[in-house]
Computed example of a mutant assay.
Amino acid sequence: MINNLNELEVLKIAQGIEEEGLRFYTEAMKRENNPQLKEIFKMLADEEKMHAELFSNMYKEAREASVKDDEYIFDEATSAYLRALSDTAVFNTNGITNSRLIEVVDTKDALLIGIQAEKDAMLFYTKIYEVSKFETTKEYLKKLIQEESEHLSKLMELYKNL
């Protein structure tokens, strides 16, 4: 039997995904020799850090709201779907990011991993948005989805120009 996730658990997973993204982009920045790409990776790392902090704040707000309203458990199918999305994302809380860093041999590799990670994040956050109960969480997620979309566009443009 699958344990149902609740919004608090999903927000913790999302925070972990952003922290893994921070780790990846920081390491990619350290390995990069091209100053322009180094700056892009630094910017992405900084934004992942801000996103992790935002999820931490969202978690605190949702925790306070959930004390008053305990009907925030997602159904079994939604919980299984969200868990599968987070477990297979490029940046996930199972430490796959560290093994992906070993695979990076050049800038194109790092950009391809970043592109896939941004797609994963958009899919995950879109699904959370669809099932989220708290309007504050939805507002934050809408902004994050837009930012991840901008990251994706930027990474794809960089990749095309290499």
Rank of each mutant, 00 (worst) to 15 (best):
T26K: 10
E130F: 10
N34I: 06
L82G: 00
E135N: 15
I115F: 03
A121K: 01
L155D: 02
V90H: 01
I2N: 13
Q36Y: 06
E150L: 13
L162I: 04
S132V: 05
D120N: 06
E64V: 15
L85E: 02
K108F: 10
I128R: 03
P35H: 11
M156R: 02
A14I: 01
K142L: 12
V67M: 09
L152Q: 03
M50E: 15
E76I: 10
M1W: 13
S66I: 04
D70I: 08
A80S: 08
N98I: 09
L123D: 09
M43N: 12
I17Y: 01
A80Y: 02
E71R: 11
E150C: 09
D109E: 08
K12V: 05
Q146W: 15
A14M: 00
E71C: 09
M156W: 02
K138Y: 06
T26Y: 15
M1N: 03
R23L: 15
E150F: 14
F24W: 00
A45K: 03
F124R: 00
E61N: 11
N94M: 08
K108C: 08
N57D: 12
T126Y: 15
E47R: 04
I113L: 06
S79L: 11
K133P: 06
L5K: 01
T88V: 10
P35I: 05
F124L: 07
E103R: 13
L44E: 03
V131D: 02
E103W: 09
F41A: 11
S99L: 11
E64T: 15
I128F: 12
F24G: 02
D106Y: 04
K38Q: 14
F134K: 10
A62M: 14
A14V: 05
Y125L: 03
S99C: 11
I128S: 03
K154W: 04
E39H: 11
I115K: 01
D109W: 03
D109A: 14
I40V: 13
A52S: 14
Y59E: 09
I13L: 09
K154I: 09
L112F: 10
Q116G: 09
T78K: 03
K68W: 15
L82M: 14
G16A: 07
K154R: 13
A89D: 04
R23C: 13
G16L: 03
M58Q: 05
K127T: 06
L123W: 10
E20L: 02
F74N: 01
E39W: 12
